[in-house]
Design a protein around this nucleic acid. Sequence first.
RNA 1: GCGGGCGUAGCUCAGUGGUAGAGCGUCACGUUGCCAACGUGAAUGUCGUGAGUUCAAAUCUCAUCGCCCGCUCCA
Length: 499
Amino acid sequence: MYNRKEIMAKLAKLDDIVSLCRRRGFIFQSSEIYGGLASCYDYGPLGAELKRNVRNAWWKHVVQMRDDVVGLDCSILMHPMVWKASGHADKFADLVTVCKKCNTRTRVDHLQDSREGTAEEHTEHVDIETEAARPHDLAGKVCPACGTVGQFTPPMAFKLMFETQMGANVDDTMTLYLRPETAQGIFANFRNVLDSTRVKVPFGIAQIGKSFRNEVTTKAFIFRTREFEQAELEFFCKPGTDEQWYEHWKQQRFDWYLNLGIKKENLRFRDHDPDELAHYAKACVDVEYKFPFGSGDWQELEGIANRTDYDLRQHQRGIRTMNDWYESKGDLTKISLKAESEDYLKGPLAYFDEEARERYVPYVIEPSAGVDRSTLAFLVDAYDEEEVKGEQRNLLRFSPALAPVKAAVFPLVKKDGMPDIAMNIYNDLKKQFTTFYDEKGAVGRRYRRQDEAGTPYCITVDGQTKKDNTVTVRERDSMEQARVNIDQVKTFLREKLDL
RNA sequence: GCGGGCGUAGCUCAGUGGUAGAGCGUCACGUUGCCAACGUGAAUGUCGUGAGUUCAAAUCUCAUCGCCCGCUCCA
């Protein structure tokens, strides 16, 4: 825990970062010219590069470098039955009540009973239709904030999925949902990938894309937003091998953050307690980062779950329910999923393992990362202030792979032919790296500006360049300079940047 | 949604009823030979938005929007 002073210092740090993000074009408030739109943010020129680098680093680690993972890019809108089968349509809602005495909002299923001293067991999302209709006896419940018994408002329901209409003809539209997770698109395409890609279990399908959740409350800059980007892997494996794959991905994903420069002391695992697990999950662990907001506490970047064979089996039930769906004219609330077939092991989403000569529905290990969250973590972790000759230097110590700009090229002064030489170097480098050219003002200022953008290297053409064809290469973190032959600059950068 | 704090230039902020300001940043020109240099000049504001009180509102009142902190959620 932190004392008040430390918390204020942390908050000040986040404010500094938010301010820098805006000032340097990393992240803007959405629709700002119209007063802003809550919970929505836009990535500016530097932020777009940074976020794309985060995505690419994830894809490289999870797909490109692996022999057992393939990629996918699904549409955001999917058949409504997907969400019936996944459980989101019925259960992706919270029932919340407010204590009249202290105005604290609490989920109904989290309330303790004064008579029994226990909360209801499950912490899952409730079935909104049946639950809201059911009379709730809150008379004996205790407010966790002020201890008052039985002073609650009637429960309110929150729908956590965004709805939208497909079809321009108003008389003939269908209600669809913006996906609340990318995972279901992977499960829905499991058969397609199997049939078209010659993959064999164990293998994974990865996807990066936007998801939408009508969060009750948003939080902390881009940390919790209603529109957000996920990077998810569903790794399919044979039942019985799931625990070792779970451990494997735990380690893989943790190391990914460390290798991209997150400080070890700011990253940790947090295992979910058994009673905290969703009913389908056998195990779940969060990768948490010590963000400088909230009460200075750890916040989740990524969840890694053992989802068992739940999702694939649910979708087999969903497929069997299609007739009911047609008959109900698409009203999801009027139908319930058909029971599982007795020979579900022969269903379309089951797998025949030729080596073992047996059928099974694969177990799934799911590492699910928040792209915006990790982008924020990389920003926060890279941010540094230090004093140089009495002046404050702000810099972002990005890993080279994440740095929005890899190198900047300057003429020391704007004369004696230096700009031409520098421009030639720039034109050559930009074919390979995101490069920036600047010839305005004092060179010291240009260095500092690049520090704030997190550019690892600055290349300066100076008076000596014309004599011996060398340039100064200045390193961001140490501010040290080395002379490098112009012909060697590209090789030098490639080695140093490891790109 | 409820409680607390806040909203003035790109950023940080001053301005408590009487002509909208400072520092930093940005741009131009000159100067400048390696770490936010210097000189001169310039641009930039619906004072979050709307209404009300007033001869006069950034300032007082009300509403509204947005942000931050807490409660809930969770990638």
